[in-house]
Design a protein around this nucleic acid. Structure first.
Ligand SMILES: [Mn+2]
Ligand SMILES: [Mn+2]
Ligand SMILES: [Zn+2]
Ligand SMILES: [Zn+2]
Lengths: 135, 135
DNA sequence: TGCAGTCTTTAGAATTGTTCTAAAATTCTT
DNA sequence: AAGAATTTTAGAACAATTCTAAAGACTGCA
């Protein structure tokens, strides 16, 4: 992660969030390695395993706040479960159907041509491409 | 709907489903007009309004069975709610963010080039393009 | 047409993922 | 360190969906 700020308290402050013990622990898990796709439940298990117990409500709060602050993006691929993505740049996803695994792929090689104009009175917000694959 | 079979009992039988009173009523609502996007809840309200009460559990059962039989396809656009689509042909969607409205657009004018190969050991299943727009 | 066998429907309970509540704990400012 | 504001937390509440098991409906075959 070249150019990534590893001073998590500072990054949280910059995002308008108090660098609490819990938020710093979660930010470390989320942002100090490569890009990740997590669910609230998977991150909660992880933070417990790392001997840093954080309540499930706090995990949900933090994920929603991080998303609202632009630190994460939410990816909707399966009904009834939200994935949060530490990669906030332009990219798309492979979704492996039975397991629920998500893989990034860069959007810069992908060209989408011929998209119709947005319905009247609306502005484009984002184009999501989900390539569903099965084993 | 040219070429569409309006004999719902026959269509259900062809799909391997007994043409019960409830399934026929739901199929009529779903398939006798143009293409539609429904949720279990919205279809349940509709069938109640049409004076043919069907339990919510049956609406869920029927939507899942119709999907498994290829009569419907499930579209995942928002966390925590499933949309079912009577258009099972190749097409993509506009999703209007605050209201949750879905609009089809044909995929034949849209070209997606440069998609990477599926991850090792997987086969392509479907490519979903969701164009998110806001007012 | 009558039955038996199988499948379906249903109400309500259960489950799952997520949000809310309000009291206790922490963080920030001075 | 004190006071004010924010955050955390356990548990309750909620929303969408699935499950349970008993009652009802459909079908094939007499
Ligand atoms: Mn959310
Ligand atoms: Mn389902
Ligand atoms: Zn991603
Ligand atoms: Zn559609």
């Amino acid at each position: 992660m070249p150019g990534t700020n590893l001073d998590f308290p500072a990054r949280l402050r910059a995002a308008g969030l108090r660098p609490t013990r819990q938020r710093v622990a979660l930010a470390r898990l989320l942002f100090e390695g490569g890009h990740r796709h997590v669910t609230a439940e998977s991150l909660h298990v992880e933070v417990k395993t790392a001997q840093m117990p954080v309540s499930l409500a706090t995990v949900y709060n933090a994920l929603n706040q991080f998303r609202d602050a632009g630190l994460l993006r939410e990816v909707v691929v399966a009904p009834g479960r939200s994935y949060f993505d530490t990669n906030t740049g332009h990219h798309h996803h492979f979704f492996v159907e039975p397991d629920g695994a998500l893989h990034d792929f860069p959007s810069d090689k992908v060209t989408i041509a011929g998209l119709p104009a947005p319905p009247k009175g609306t502005r484009l917000s984002r184009v999501d491409v989900i390539v569903r694959v099965r084993r």
